[in-house]
Design a protein around this nucleic acid. Structure first.
Lengths: 159, 159
DNA sequence: TCAATCAGGACCGCAGCGGTCCGAATGGTT
DNA sequence: AACCATTCGGACCGCTGCGGTCCTGATTGA
């Protein structure tokens, strides 16, 4: 239904979490803080590192850190990193769908693509961070979550 | 990869085709003209009729016709009709993901959703129609396609 | 040398999509 | 009244891709 993948959602949460504190952070640590399963966090982090959104440091006391501040990361970059290039139709992404000259669909979705691309580039992770109710960013919230216990894993994503 | 369903692409093609000529048009007829498999055309038309984008007339000499002119149909409507409501994340669509008060993701994607929604409402099918190179709308093109023969069915979509 | 951590795969279950088909309802036509 | 063309509303199915897990290296600090 025109929705982006859950991994992308996770990626945003992880990136925002990385921004909360400087210095490297390990994937188990982020997993614990976000209530996202650890292997999934690792997967997301690896992908993000490959796309240059985060930098990694290997070895003992290694971890990940943000490559640039949240305000310099448009959502479009995150989506592109996880879900691949933003392309509404098959025609648009791979160049010629078969024979570019013959396909009348060619170019049809271009204006739509451009509009969405522009919209996605105009919103940074900092914007999304601010969209969260302040209450959720306070320590009290985290404590409260811990009490709730068992239901945590199925939750979509947390800070 | 953040792309919309092929059915939506078909829907646009079918709607544009409907606009090419007034009076009712049967789904086999549209299928022949668009090179889209007939059952699929029928399915798309049924869905569109259910959402009020086209009107249907049953019985002999029945068929479909546009409910409103192309310029009055934003792409958003077509996408919503075929793919369901535009909602980037699970949280956004169904109301509370579980416990709205506790989920810090709540509201996070809202600005992104609104931006995309606005972009999609700003483009009508008439705009998309005009984006097609004129050459493809001329009779000569259709004749040329017919010659190409066998490869037609696999083509993404045609007028 | 050892432990911690990232890297890069392989792997699998499952939902959703694209696509097809069938029976029933409907309304002209003869 | 009988018939036929056409839409309607499902059921159905194979397959791709996603979410999620795991395993085996490579790298670095203690």
């Amino acid at each position: 239904m025109f929705k982006l993948s859950k991994l992308t959602d996770y990626a945003v949460v992880v990136l925002v979490r990385l921004a909360r504190q400087d210095g490297v952070q390990t994937s188990p640590g982020i997993a614990a803080a976000t209530f996202i399963p650890e292997p999934t966090v690792a997967k997301v982090l690896k992908t993000l590192a490959g796309k240059g959104l985060v930098t990694s440091q290997r070895g003992a006391h290694g971890g990940y850190r943000l490559a640039r501040p949240l305000a310099a990361i448009p959502v479009a970059d995150v989506i592109a990193a996880i879900d691949g290039p933003i392309a509404l139709t098959a025609c648009v992404e791979g160049g010629s769908c078969e024979s570019e000259r013959l396909c009348p669909m060619h170019g049809r979705w271009d204006p739509v693509n451009e509009a969405i691309d522009a919209a996605l580039h105009g919103i940074t992770l900092a914007d999304m961070d601010h969209a969260i109710p302040r209450a959720f960013r306070e320590p009290a919230f985290v404590a409260h979550r811990d009490e709730s216990g068992a239901s945590a894993p199925e939750a979509v994503a947390r800070l």
